[in-house]
């Protein structure tokens, strides 16, 4: 049955040539025993005595799954095989079997599939353990190069993330309303105080805002805050500063204006406009505001945090007097605080 025309055969290979071409080959006798194993297999599993052992004692044929006799092995010749070592670490292998007509034996050539990355590590393999025509080395190069690049990429992402957080922390804008935030306010007050420009500080706290939030939800609350913001911006000049410094707390810096009557009027005007109901999904949201104002002209030496504290004290006077009012921090309050402080 094996008498084939001569032109279909090439001269037989020396074992050295076999080792070079297929360092993971096995020659199997007609009885299903291993006659010899390639050098890489021998290096991987030094504790296994390959020659003389039955092939299927050492390897489990997983696909196709039927083989347990030599006849079965002939039957799978030419097919792609999945095998694994029966012995730990049970490395997965790919293989192909071809017939050796002279001896009725078989030649099984093995290779690592994707398990190569683990295998080279586990078995301490080097370049010379693979045939130079195999792409294993290029594949490993690529895996290692890509993981180095991924590592750099991860570092870059971490740095960018850090930079984004830092930028957010340094931002001067309140994201909900687009107004200045507390950090910006402190900066502006510092500049105004250093330049000895007269200015008034108006601290505004919304009244009944919590009720809107509690009964109509946060979306309604946010809607009201945005409406308040645009009202405050409209009520002031472009040189003035409008800042949101807390949930429902706002501060206006009115530039070059320390006339008490004018500021009182401005405060009342703002309260009137804020009391006009805002509609959210058809329902009216009703709020008001309490206001306290301090004036840089009341201080011999302007300290922004002192002015903020005095405006805040005046604001609480407004709250205590029944809300929806404007209280001007009196020079007396200012001096008293200065004396106590």
């Amino acid at each position: 049955m094996h008498n084939r025309p001569a032109e279909n055969h090439v001269s037989s290979l020396s074992v050295r040539a076999l080792d070079q071409l297929m360092p993971m080959h096995l020659i199997i006798s007609a009885t299903g025993h291993i006659v010899r194993a390639g050098p890489t297999l021998a290096k991987m599993m030094p504790e296994i005595q390959f020659s003389g052992a039955r092939l299927l004692e050492i390897f489990e044929l997983q696909n196709p799954p039927t083989a347990d006799s030599m006849t079965d092995l002939y039957a799978v010749a030419g097919q792609a095989l999945r095998l694994r070592f029966r012995r730990s670490p049970n490395t997965q292998l790919k293989g192909i079997i071809v017939e050796l007509p002279e001896t009725n034996g078989l030649l099984l050539n093995l290779s690592f599939g994707i398990s190569v990355i683990e295998a080279v590590q586990k078995f301490n393999l080097t370049i010379s353990d693979f045939a130079p025509t195999e792409l294993v080395v290029e594949m490993l190069y690529l895996v290692e190069a890509k993981s180095a690049v991924m590592n750099e990429s991860r570092n870059l992402n971490l740095r960018l993330q850090g930079a984004r957080i830092a930028a957010e922390e340094q931002a001067f804008t309140d994201t909900l309303t687009g107004l200045k935030n507390r950090r910006a306010l402190e900066h502006i007050l510092g500049v105004a105080a250093a330049q000895h420009r007269p200015f008034a500080l108006m601290q505004i706290d919304l009244d009944f805002f919590k009720d809107v939030n509690d009964t109509m939800g946060h979306a309604a609350g946010d809607h009201v805050l945005q409406h308040v913001s645009s009202t405050l911006v409209q009520a002031t000049r472009s040189d003035d500063t409008v800042a949101r410094i807390g949930g429902d707390e706002f501060v206006l810096v009115i530039d070059n204006q320390v006339d008490k009557r004018a500021l009182n009027d401005l405060g009342l005007r703002i309260i009137r406009r804020l009391e006009e109901p805002v509609f959210f999904k058809g329902d009216p949201c009703e709020i008001s505001a309490s206001i306290g104002v301090s004036f840089s002209s009341d201080y011999s030496c302007v300290d922004p945090s002192e002015m903020l504290a005095d405006a805040d004290a005046a604001l609480y006077d407004s709250k205590n007097k029944g809300r929806a009012q404007v209280t001007l921090a009196t020079p007396y309050v200012a001096t008293r605080r200065a004396a106590n402080g």
């Binding site: 080279v120 393999l125 294993v136």
Partner: peptide
């Protein structure tokens, strides 16, 4: 120095 295909730290 010996070059092994598998990385020591992998």
């Amino acid at each position: 120095s010996i070059f092994k295909l598998g990385r020591a730290d992998a």
